[in-house]
């Protein structure tokens, strides 16, 4: 497969993919290896790693850090993917309309996009979650709301450059509807950069979610890495393992997604095909 060949040329991307697959497997099998609720008080509080039957130690209430990481992987990946899907969808709609029609619609939509872009995204996310009350839905919405403008601008740029190409004009002459041209002709031609930006956005979404949970704005009923770090940070000097392992989990996941994104960029971007 040509795509895989191009992708595999970037060794980092392959390593990233392996890590990502492992994390996905961990998230999928969390319930098998740790059948208990990750919040359950599993044993002796503040046990160091390896003691009292805790692989990665326990926190101040005796919750298993390893179970939290496994279940938290589910939350992080789920929120990352969901938020990205919503953001990409909104971004494509806005960008496509603005780029394809131009003029007044373009002006209107792009000013709107800029309005969102001028607000610092993390602070905006905090604000949204605080207003909507912390829950998994409000976090997904908040992350999507702060993430879509980048996609919209990218898609608009692509549409602008593609809409006057000869194949598009040919479609016009054939009497195709605008919608069909947008979805069937232009969009497939600008998907590669969208896929790349989307994959990187998953990483950002995971970071935002962790940041929110760290600040206590996560869904209090759902285990996440950010929550673990937030709950453990007051113990940092007496129980280092409570924050350290979830921190490593976030680091690895975000790094892996970035590597994969980079690899996809290499594979999908024709201009970079000759890059070694």
């Amino acid at each position: 497969m040509a795509f895989w060949k191009l992708f595999a040329r970037n060794r980092g991307a392959v390593i990233g993919l392996v890590i990502l697959v492992l994390i996905t497997v961990m998230a999928a099998t969390a319930g098998l290896f740790f059948p208990q609720d990750p919040f359950s008080l599993a044993g002796q509080p503040m046990s160091p790693p390896g003691e009292n039957g805790f692989l990665l130690g326990s926190d101040s209430l005796g919750r298993d850090v390893a179970a939290g990481i496994a279940h938290g992987a589910k939350t992080s990946l789920l929120i990352g993917l969901l938020a990205t899907l919503v953001a990409v969808f909104v971004g494509i709609v806005m960008g496509a309309l603005a780029g394809y029609y131009g003029g007044f619609i373009d002006n209107l939509l792009m000013r709107l996009t800029e309005m969102f872009q001028t607000i610092p995204s993390f602070i905006f996310a905090i604000l949204l979650v605080a207003i909507m009350k912390p829950s998994i839905e409000s976090i997904v919405i908040a992350i999507a709301v702060v993430s879509w403008p980048a996609v919209a601008r990218l898609v608009r740029g692509e549409f602008l450059s593609l809409r006057n190409r000869e194949f598009v004009q040919a479609c016009h002459t054939l009497g195709m509807s605008d919608l069909r041209i947008m979805l069937g002709e232009i969009l497939p031609n600008c998907l590669s950069p969208v896929i790349v930006i989307g994959s990187l956005m998953v990483a950002t979404a995971i970071l935002i979610e962790s940041g929110l949970a760290f600040l206590g704005l996560g869904d209090p009923n759902i285990m996440s890495w950010g929550f673990q770090i937030g709950a453990g940070r007051t113990l940092l000097r007496s129980a280092w393992w409570v924050c350290t392992f979830p921190g490593i989990a976030i680091l690895l996941t975000v790094l892996a997604i970035n590597l994969v994104g980079e690899g996809m960029n290499d594979a999908l971007n024709p201009r970079l095909r000759e890059r070694s």
Binding site: F39, L41, G216, P220, T234
Partner: peptide, 25 residues
Amino acid sequence: EDWRRAGEYMKQALAPIGIELDLRY
């Protein structure tokens, strides 16, 4: 933070007697 931990504890402590709590901050 202490109170949050207490809430998380309560949720766990009441589950075995069949009282299911959701936490709200």
